[in-house]
């Protein structure tokens, strides 16, 4: 896995619901495609995505080959305090990528 893009506002007010947008560079190889030699290209997808805030899981997803390449996942969050969001993507090859983003309550 290479690059990830996290889009989340840096400051939030109490009670505000924010949308977190994530993009991860990944081919999401379905396992159903054949290569030039006619052999099946082995499946390699991000099968799980987890977002925690200060260690508490706030959102997760199991993904299947029907999710587009370079997967885009956006979800909502209503923080109660300042803290750090941690994003983790896990792929079939055992690769994992971690990104973080800080939110300040104002």
């Amino acid at each position: 896995m290479a690059a990830a893009l996290i889009n989340v506002q840096k400051t939030v007010r109490k009670g505000e619901i924010i949308e977190i947008k994530t993009l991860m560079a990944h081919p999401m190889e379905t396992g159903f495609r054949t290569g030039l030699g006619g052999q099946l290209i082995p499946r390699d997808i991000i099968h799980r995505f987890v977002c925690t805030f200060e260690g508490v899981e706030i959102f997760a997803a199991d993904l299947f080959p029907a999710i587009s390449a370079n997967p885009f996942i956006a979800f909502t969050f209503m923080p109660q305090q300042s803290g750090t969001l941690t994003f983790r993507w896990f792929d079939d090859k055992g690769g994992a990528q971690v990104e973080t983003a800080r939110i300040e309550m104002v």
């Binding site: 949308e19 899981e57 199991d62 999710i67």
Partner: peptide, 18 residues
Amino acid sequence: IALFYLTPHAGRAQVSTR
């Protein structure tokens, strides 16, 4: 296609993907 796990922290039950 996908299975999303939500919590009350979400504020709203809404998810987008492609």
